[in-house]
Amino acid sequence: MRGYAGVVVIAGDGVLMIREPDFFTREPIWSVPSGKIEAGESPDQAAVRELAEEAGCRLECTDLELIATTTVAHRGEQLSTSWTFTAAVDPGTALQPADPDELILEARWIPRDEAMIRLTRRSYAPLREPALRYLRTGELGLAWTFELIDPAAAIPSFRWAEPELAG
């Protein structure tokens, strides 16, 4: 089973966003730093590593709070699990991507309202929805399940219900 981690970083009224090619469309999009959990990493370690690589923003695992866990399933089979975290940093925090894959086009602080608009354009709902929900409500500790409708589609579509409190 695959695992992914992402982080919504807040600095004052700004949200840290990266611009990168969408995994499915290859069109440049704005998103929050995220990526695959590597062998031997915990979800929070992966989030800290992805944040450092994609934005040059350095945090410790203890700086993170869990927004949500997300399960993706198809016909009862669990395909992946994702963890979305949040952290707050000083508004003057400098950004300097050091992406080893050289996919990150830009990292920038975006005002919260604009960040939410940009996130709605993200095609992958299991990353988009927890980040949007957090930016709208500030809720933490949620558990989501996303049902993949057609695994053969070029751009995946999902069904999901309201998240539950994890625990």
Rank of each mutant, 00 (worst) to 15 (best):
1 M>P: 06
9 V>F: 00
12 G>F: 08
18 I>E: 06
18 I>N: 08
19 R>I: 04
19 R>Q: 14
20 E>K: 06
23 F>L: 11
26 R>I: 09
27 E>I: 09
32 V>R: 03
37 I>G: 05
39 A>R: 08
40 G>C: 11
40 G>Q: 11
42 S>N: 02
47 A>R: 01
50 E>C: 01
50 E>T: 02
53 E>Q: 10
53 E>F: 07
54 E>I: 08
57 C>E: 00
59 L>R: 02
61 C>W: 02
62 T>F: 01
63 D>H: 00
63 D>L: 00
65 E>K: 10
68 A>Q: 02
70 T>H: 01
70 T>Y: 03
72 V>S: 11
74 H>W: 15
74 H>V: 12
79 L>H: 08
79 L>G: 11
79 L>W: 09
86 T>H: 00
88 A>V: 04
89 V>G: 04
91 P>M: 14
91 P>H: 14
92 G>A: 14
103 L>D: 09
103 L>H: 05
109 W>Q: 08
109 W>R: 07
112 R>F: 05
113 D>W: 06
113 D>G: 10
117 I>Q: 15
122 R>D: 10
126 P>C: 13
136 R>C: 10
150 D>R: 08
151 P>E: 12
153 A>I: 04
154 A>Q: 13
156 P>Q: 08
160 W>C: 10
162 E>A: 14
163 P>H: 04
164 E>F: 05
164 E>Q: 13
166 A>S: 11
